[in-house]
Simulated scan of single mutants.
Amino acid sequence: MEWLNYHHLLYFWTVARAGSIAAASQELHVGRPAISMQLKSLEAFFGTPLFLRRGRRLELTETGKLVEGYASEIFRTGRELVEVVRGSSLGRRQVVRVGIADVMAKLIAFALLDSAFSEDDDVHLVLSEDSPRRLFAALAVHELDLVLSDVALAPGLDVRARSHRVGSSTTTLFASPELAARLAPGFPGSLDGAPFLLPSRESAVRASLDRWFESERLRPRTVAEFDDSALMKVFGQAGRGAFPGPTAVAEQIVERYGVRALGVLPTVTERYWAISPERKIAHPAVARIVEGAAAVFPS
């Protein structure tokens, strides 16, 4: 069996992340000619180019993207190995990397993630926030252990993962106390022409909201649209407009942001998904997140 040279792989991985040999040279404290030779040796080993030159930058070929994904997982595992063996502050702790869709309600995300913690072990969560599309891409190259999203993994995406539906919630509309005092009488008709804060069209619930407005023949005045659900609530707290939120965490929204609930929209529902990179959820903390969803969304 022909063994892979991991020094070559490290140089390749550093160049892939840095975008150029010059930047990688500074990071590794290794001369450019040496890095170039290592890259040529690795390409010869695989029998195919890993980079394409675009001006001063290097872009990964399709094979290069595949190798970079595996390299990220290899070096991530290596770091964890060192932490465990040396007994560092993270040794014996379960490191769980979770991506959260930016449009997903953060109170829902917290309630789901809180299930990861157990008295029997120690968990270190590493959380990132981005669009579902980018999070799924990170999941594909093993940069994440789990993605929490309001949309499931599309069948056409080339990602080896499974979508686990963890719950759903109807939608409640909220407003600051001053605005709620104006809108509560005659709700929902009072929303016609009223200032409103909307999730972006990337959000799964946006289409349901638009259909509800159309069915009720309401045309609220859109003040702003948000990718970040938490920022939308801050604007709502300041009285800039009414805004939607999951009924499952309506009490927490009222308490945290000092707003009032205007009413529930039973036909506007939002589903929540946990997407893992394997058919069987092996990571104990990830399994607890999925299993603990029943407490967040009681039937």
Results as ranks from 00 to 15, higher is better:
E2D: 14
L9C: 07
T14I: 04
T14Y: 00
A24G: 10
S25Q: 00
Q26I: 12
E27Q: 15
H29E: 14
R32H: 11
P33Y: 01
A34S: 15
I35H: 01
S36G: 12
M37Y: 12
S41N: 14
L42I: 06
F46W: 13
L50M: 08
G55D: 06
T63V: 14
I74T: 13
R76N: 09
R79A: 09
V82F: 12
V85E: 14
R86P: 00
G87Y: 10
V98C: 03
A101Y: 03
V103N: 14
L107F: 08
E119I: 11
D121F: 06
H124L: 15
L125C: 01
L127R: 02
S128P: 01
S128E: 13
R133H: 13
R134M: 13
L135I: 01
F136L: 11
L139V: 05
L148C: 07
D150K: 10
L153M: 05
L157A: 12
D158Y: 09
V159Y: 10
R160A: 15
A161E: 07
L173E: 03
P177I: 05
A180D: 08
G186L: 02
P188S: 09
A194V: 05
P195E: 06
E202V: 14
S203T: 09
V205M: 01
R206F: 09
L209G: 06
L209P: 00
S215C: 07
L218A: 01
R221H: 12
S229T: 10
A230V: 08
A230F: 11
M232L: 15
K233Q: 13
V234D: 09
G245V: 04
G245I: 05
A248S: 09
V249Y: 06
V249E: 04
E255N: 13
R256G: 05
Y257R: 01
A261E: 14
G263S: 06
G263D: 03
L265S: 01
T267V: 12
V268P: 06
T269C: 11
E270W: 07
Y272K: 00
A274R: 03
I275Q: 02
S276R: 12
K280G: 13
H283K: 12
R288V: 00
A294G: 11
A294F: 04
V296Q: 00
